[in-house]
Simulated assay, not measured.
Amino acid sequence: MGELISVIVPVYNTPEQYLNECIKSVLKSSYSNIEVLIVDDGSNSEVARQCDGFQESDSRVQVIHQKNAGVSVARNNGIRSAAGKYITFVDADDTIEYDMLQTLYDLCNQNEADFVVCKFNEVHENSITQKQYTNETKVIVGNNIVSSFYLKLDIGWISCAKLIKTSLAKKASFPEGKRTAEDMYFVWQLCKMASKIVVIDKPYYNYRKNETSAMADKDLSKFFDTAELIELVWKGEEDSSNQIKANAFFVNNEIWFIRFMIARGANWKCNERLQEIRNKVFMQTNRMVFRYLSNGRRLEFLLLKYFPSLFYLLAKMQTGRMSE
């Protein structure tokens, strides 16, 4: 039997079927030495009872009830309570493959890695988005870890689909009071501290896409937390060898953010804030970052700077997906 893995599941009024599927997938994992920390973030009494039911039926489940304070607080409380050598996060409406924990645990131990990253499937109401994967593993070490975070999509922004050494996770935290991109900020902290990580290009996590999720919310004001955290990441980079790459991360993602908000129908109040972000991009961009931007993003930069009306029209024609 391997070392204990703490599986942290934040719950807030999750539909009964989804929560059942989630916890069932974790408890039926081929890797059985786990503790499942269900953090109930002030759910209604029915969901709270459902959580308690899992604890009553399986000794590996522990329920932590807290007043509603948001997913970041719930995850941070889970981290503080974790007794395992490793931590993984599973959102309450998602599921994991039966061999995810075993596979990630083996990769972590074999490579003496600080954390392991796998890919995920996008599960829609009636379908699963099919993507091409190589099933290859890649080891990233030292300064290349945070560079990869800034410039590539290998590591990703989500805290799920990762197995993390608890000793590392306890040195980081999710930013409380933020409603979007809190995962990204947490992952960035991990990358800054890690010495070695492993990325496997195979999906073991099933991410449910639904219209009630945070990223599908119609309240656009919350998404400005994303823009603020992108800027905090850039300004938080103190290593001179990474500052240009961090600046490229800022430029790349703030332009994407402006486009995303316009595509989602940002109103005039939002547009004023988007204009402020646009001005920051142009005032605080080192010319050397262009080597790290795709041709498409360079074109968007120029359109946003010299032909903002055209940028706006093109953005309105897009779907507003958060995936790029």
Rank of each mutant, 00 (worst) to 15 (best):
27 L>A: 03
52 D>P: 01
32 S>N: 00
49 R>M: 15
93 D>M: 05
97 E>P: 00
90 V>E: 08
38 I>V: 10
93 D>T: 03
45 S>I: 08
51 C>E: 11
112 E>I: 00
90 V>A: 09
92 A>D: 14
115 F>Q: 06
69 A>Y: 09
49 R>S: 15
111 N>I: 01
114 D>E: 08
57 S>C: 00
35 E>I: 11
67 K>Y: 13
77 N>Y: 12
22 C>G: 06
58 D>F: 04
47 V>M: 13
79 I>S: 07
34 I>Y: 00
89 F>K: 09
102 Q>H: 06
39 V>G: 08
105 Y>G: 12
94 D>W: 03
94 D>H: 07
109 N>Q: 14
69 A>R: 14
88 T>E: 13
107 L>R: 00
107 L>M: 07
72 S>H: 07
41 D>G: 10
115 F>K: 05
95 T>S: 11
67 K>D: 14
86 Y>N: 10
66 Q>T: 15
82 A>L: 07
94 D>I: 12
65 H>E: 08
47 V>I: 15
93 D>R: 02
42 G>P: 13
56 E>L: 09
107 L>G: 03
77 N>L: 15
108 C>F: 02
114 D>R: 04
97 E>M: 03
54 F>V: 02
82 A>N: 06
58 D>H: 03
101 L>I: 14
106 D>P: 06
75 R>Y: 13
118 C>R: 02
107 L>K: 02
90 V>M: 10
59 S>L: 01
31 Y>D: 12
99 D>F: 04
73 V>I: 14
93 D>K: 01
87 I>H: 05
77 N>H: 14
102 Q>W: 05
39 V>C: 11
25 S>I: 14
51 C>G: 08
34 I>W: 01
49 R>A: 14
86 Y>T: 11
96 I>E: 05
117 V>L: 08
72 S>N: 14
109 N>C: 14
119 K>T: 00
60 R>T: 06
32 S>W: 00
54 F>A: 02
90 V>P: 09
76 N>K: 05
28 K>A: 09
95 T>L: 06
28 K>P: 02
118 C>Q: 04
52 D>K: 08
31 Y>K: 04
83 A>M: 09
39 V>E: 10
83 A>L: 12
